[in-house]
């Protein structure tokens, strides 16, 4: 079951890389958040109250709060789709596939003492993380970049699952809180960028550099 979830997560990554509609990307990231959040159910050996509580909070934030917030931001700035990406959609999907290959290669190099007997966890985490950064690089609209940031965090979350012991979820909570605040700040910044430049195209920020 956990393998299925991981496969779906990676597929969501590819979907995100290939779609131009902002609304669908938000749906996809919400679904990916959902997948990632429920993963501990299937890989943890024993399910305690704290694990359930943790999963529920993660689920709430990742797949409801943040996407809804992003949805309202999108409505407010009235931008529906990504036009003129820096790297095209087909190219992005192709690069996504290359990222998966490199991740598996890296995953084979690392011999973690893996608790969960799940060899796909590490490559999937690396793929999601790297694709998140890739999304930030490859798209111009700031809202897509926020989504790339979210995807990156999902990747970190997956990697964290390998490294942390079952009950040490305190770090994950910290990251989650960071993320929530980060996205809210991004919303405000987005609004201001939109007001200043009449667009949320981040290449316009180039005019802010010195010399």
């Amino acid at each position: 079951m956990s393998n299925l979830i991981l496969t779906l997560t990676v597929l969501m990554v590819l979907f995100c890389l290939g779609s131009s509609r902002l609304l669908s990307i938000i749906y996809l990231i919400a679904f990916q958040g959902f997948l990632v959040s429920v993963l501990p159910f299937f890989i943890n050996d024993k399910i305690t109250i704290s694990v359930i509580l943790f999963i529920l909070v993660t689920l709430l934030i990742k797949s409801f709060l943040i996407p809804i917030f992003l949805y309202f931001v999108m409505k407010r700035i009235t931008i529906k789709r990504e036009i003129e990406p820096i790297i095209g959609y087909n190219g992005s999907v192709f690069l996504g596939l290359i990222i998966i290959i490199i991740s598996i290669f890296i995953g084979n190099k690392f011999n973690f003492h893996i608790n969960h007997h799940n060899t796909f966890l590490f490559p999937a985490g690396i793929t999601t993380l790297t694709s998140g950064i890739f999304l930030i690089i490859a798209r111009k609209k700031a809202i897509t970049q926020v989504i790339g940031y979210l995807m990156m965090e999902n990747g970190i979350y997956l990697l964290g699952l390998i490294l942390s012991n079952h009950n040490l979820n305190i770090i994950e909570f910290g990251i989650l809180l960071d993320l929530l605040v980060g996205v809210m700040l991004m919303g405000i910044v987005l609004h201001n960028i939109n007001k200043t430049f009449d667009d949320i195209d981040t290449t316009l920020l180039k005019s802010l550099r010195d010399l």
Binding site: I86, T130, I133, F134, I136, I137, A138, K140, T202, T203, L205, K206, L208, R209
Partner: peptide, 11 residues
């Protein structure tokens, strides 16, 4: 000054 490529460096 291109933010995208700055992040690309990190990647």
């Amino acid at each position: 000054g291109n933010i995208h490529i700055y992040i690309g460096y990190i990647l």
